[in-house]
């Protein structure tokens, strides 16, 4: 069981490495979106500090949304996805492997880069730590839920916009708990409850979405 998971993760990581430009576009998008907000609302430090958690979380969410369309697209186009559906290994595990690799190349860099952007918004040190932690818990859930949308919109006209419409409502709890954790910490309330709820979101996404994604893939491949 673990073997197939590792095989798929390795495969997708190697593919991502050979196409590394894609990874950087997602990251660049994240940075640019986050940097646009100060230009829009003005350079007032206090305002920016209050806005920072929400802005950074929304940017991470949009960056995920932008890149998750590619999760199955290439495999769908060249016929590999069909072969995955015919594997003797459970499709849920293959899906989980693909999502894991996807998170490692798009989610993890966001987590690592977020402190830098936090500094840009003059977040206090403690809040920056909470920001990284909340992103580390939240972005895997974003990737998992995004997988369902990517599988459902496979090969459809205007798939990207449709994907946003399907998935954004599902992202609401993660956004609330994630950005809320940073906000609560900055306000001196302690981020524990938020982070635990975020972890619960991640675990329930882990429980539901590989199955939903596998089912969606079978439906879309017909």
């Amino acid at each position: 069981m673990l073997k197939i998971l590792i095989a798929v993760v390795r495969r997708d990581l190697l593919l991502a490495w050979r196409r590394r430009a894609d990874v950087f576009t997602t990251l660049a998008f994240f940075i640019i979106v986050a940097s646009l907000f100060p230009l829009g609302v003005g350079p007032e430090p206090n305002l920016l500090r209050t806005m920072a958690p929400g802005v950074l979380w929304v940017s991470a969410l949009l960056a995920t949304l932008l890149s998750v369309t590619r999760l199955f697209a290439a495999d769908y186009a060249d016929g590999t996805l069909e072969q995955m559906l015919l594997s003797t290994e459970p499709l849920t595990l293959i899906v989980l492997g693909k999502v894991t690799a996807y998170w490692l190349v798009t989610g993890l860099p966001l987590v690592l880069l977020a402190p830098l952007l936090g500094v840009q918004f003059d977040l206090p040190q403690g809040a920056i730590g909470v920001l990284s932690l909340s992103l580390a818990l939240g972005t895997p859930a974003l990737s998992l839920l995004g997988g369902i949308g990517a599988a459902l919109t496979l090969g459809l006209r205007g798939g990207g916009v449709l994907l946003a419409l399907l998935i954004l409502p599902l992202y609401v709890p993660i956004l609330i708990f994630g950005a809320g954790a940073v906000g609560a910490d900055a306000a001196g309330l302690g981020a524990g409850a938020h982070l635990l709820l975020l972890a619960a979101c991640f675990l329930s996404a882990l429980a539901v979405s590989p199955w939903a994604t596998a089912a969606a893939l079978r439906i879309s491949m017909e």
């Binding site: 369902i148 459902l152 399907l166 409502p169 599902l170 609401v172 709890p173 609330i176 708990f177 809320g180 709820l197 979101c201 329930s204 539901v208 939903a212 089912a215 969606a216 439906i219 879309s220």
Partner: peptide, 25 residues
């Protein structure tokens, strides 16, 4: 039919979570 069904069901699971999170927020 079936893709829509997956979305509706995933949404239905999420509705209580969304409601809770929004109230909390």
């Amino acid at each position: 039919d079936r893709a829509g069904a997956v979305v509706a069901l995933v949404g239905a699971i999420n509705v209580p979570i969304i409601y809770f999170s929004v109230t909390w927020w």
